[in-house]
Design a protein around this nucleic acid. Structure first.
Lengths: 189, 189
DNA sequence: TCATGACTGGACCAATCGGTCTATTCCTGT
DNA sequence: ACAGGAATAGACCGATTGGTCCAGTCATGA
């Protein structure tokens, strides 16, 4: 999984992102982490002097960047915002299936269950805002007004977060795939 | 906070539900737990022979039951499903504000970041399904067909889950209060 | 009044936690 | 060739973890 040509630092970040996402911040010990990254303890504290919290923040940023790329990719060939959302949800569903049906939002797993740290929460807010801003920019590019663009992007964010939760509980990516339907109002009887 | 007339078992469950909700399953040690519940270790293993996992499952069920009550209360005097959703979201926002602006979904905090245990995930699925079923029953009572009722209830669930996540990151209950707007389609221009 | 089981209280345990420290190896510029 | 910093390797540490165990206390029914 982890390319062996990757630098130790990158291997640590990837291992952290993957393990934290599944078990949560406190659910992963340094031993698991170092074993997964095939790195000794000295390297961890060389690259991340403040230790586990430092690494966790780096992992959260890395995971967030991947999500930003996924959003951009999904909207690349879209002609409407709704089309982009549909593509994004299908991509998320595919990733969900690939990884053993357990993944929720990586940011939430890393930053919310982390230490009492206010910095962690602020990071989560900043990273989430990045997702919403990226979505809003895509919406504007596709012709929406700034207000509607932001509204639609925030709606997309909330649906994906909620969908991740339900998908995880059910161990089924179906919820994610059907998320785009929720952009439409409920049809009567 | 914990009424001292409560039985030791109930104090343990409440303490567990409260602490796990904020810090996640692995983020709470037995020491914190027992201090909060004002109970000795012997009592814990008397009431919950299998220890921490046992207690966590009991706490999740307790928290889930509170949510079921909250849903029922919210729909009690509603004349439409949308009205009930609005009341529920406002109640959740109020609770969110009361408790220090950090609470997400208690079930997710307890069961998702818990041990690798398949039972935990199955519990989460069962409890979440209870919420959705309760919402669907309320919708049917208010005149919706079974299919639409379930659809609307599942939409409500997803929105609340997503809203909790964003509210937590922003430390603001506003998201929760504005959730009912997302039942409507995005207004153009 | 005493016997019995439910419950409490806390000492104690091995294992693991996150983190420190120093010795060594590797890489790069000169 | 060699100097020197970057990076690796892992022994080691005190604190804390979840869990065990048993002596003591309590309530209740006979």
């Amino acid at each position: 999984m982890n390319n062996r040509t990757l630098s130790t630092k990158d291997r640590l970040i990837r291992a952290a992102a993957n393990l934290f996402r599944v078990h949560g911040y406190h659910g992963v010990g340094l031993n698991d982490l170092l074993a997964e990254a095939k790195a000794p303890k000295g390297s961890l504290y060389h690259h991340f002097p403040k230790g586990k919290p430092d690494l966790a923040r780096a992992a959260a940023i890395w995971a967030s960047d991947r999500m930003l790329n996924l959003i951009a990719e999904s909207f690349e060939n879209a002609t409407t915002f709704e089309e982009g959302v549909t593509t994004l949800c299908h991509k998320l569903a595919k990733l969900f299936d690939l990884s053993g049906n357990w993944d929720g939002c990586p940011i939430a797993a890393i930053l919310f269950e982390g230490p009492e740290n206010e910095e962690f929460r602020a990071d989560a807010q900043r990273l989430y805002d990045g997702w919403i801003t990226e979505g809003a920019e895509q919406a504007e590019r596709l012709g929406e007004t700034p207000e509607v663009a932001r509204e639609k992007s925030e709606r997309m964010f909330i649906l994906i977060q909620g969908g991740w939760t339900l998908a995880r509980a059910r161990r089924s990516s179906d919820v994610l795939r059907e998320l785009p339907l929720l952009f439409e109002p409920v049809k009567a009887g």
